[in-house]
Amino acid sequence: MSVEVLRARAKIISTIRNFFVERGVLEVETPLLSPATVTDPHILSIPAIWKNQTFYLQTSPEFAMKRLLAAGSGSIFQICKAFRQDETAQYHHHEFTMLEWYRIGFDHHDLMNEMDELLQRVLNCEPAERMTYADIFEKYTGLNPHFASKEQFVARARQLVEFSGELSDINDWLDLLFTHCIEPKMQHDRPIFVYDYPISQAALAKIRYETPKVASRFEVYFKGIELANGFHELQNSAEQRKRFEADLAYRKLHQLPEVPIDEDFLKALSNLPDCSGVALGLDRLIMLKLNAKTLADCSNQ
């Protein structure tokens, strides 16, 4: 990495800090190591041993930040390292820098508005385009993601993607279709916000019991690259526990590492104020700003 890239990084990070200071959002720091971790079947933590006890390097500061919110911190942001068992690739690294922030009283549309302002400030880009998950999915696959059956997703994926192999879960087929038939089409000159996800992909988002039921989740894409993921945050710890348990069942079925559920987080969740939060891959943002081709060109690796 060159000195120019170091300077560009520092400048972008200072722009981001100013953005949040102007809005009265408090900067926080939370622990990188925790005795519990995320259950997401496709986000695998890197363990670290201390005094014979297994800890996990955080995959994002989400749980720790939500505990601060539950304790009354008000709106907060954090720029920190996150770690995942990912391959080293063009847009992936096992250690990366994340910007995560939470806004009290915001729903996911309010947070998308703020994300839009931040991206325009940092990237000098056009205002973002917004599409529901259902609209963009239907546009490129011809299937409604909320109503189509697993068999229909499988058949369409086999038709549209040269794919060798089997997937057991309906979400994995949705991911195959999304990454192969939709992401490559998102080469617009402005960011795209995709929102209102299928409830099977709710993760830590609220579900709205409308017709169809949708998860108040959004993702940010720019030039075909996934930049950020946000939620109107679920405040119901019983429901969150059910989702964690479903994740652990998937992990067991697929012989993925079993991890302890973060009980402190679940306890705090009942006291979480109504808020929305989002995590943004800062190295990818800097990569886009610098027109770099790979993460390695612009992260401090």
Partner: peptide, 14 residues
């Protein structure tokens, strides 16, 4: 060999 992985989703290799 391109690694394709959504943040929260299944990883693929193209």
């Amino acid at each position: 060999n391109e690694y394709v992985k959504p943040g929260k989703g299944q990883a693929f290799n193209r």
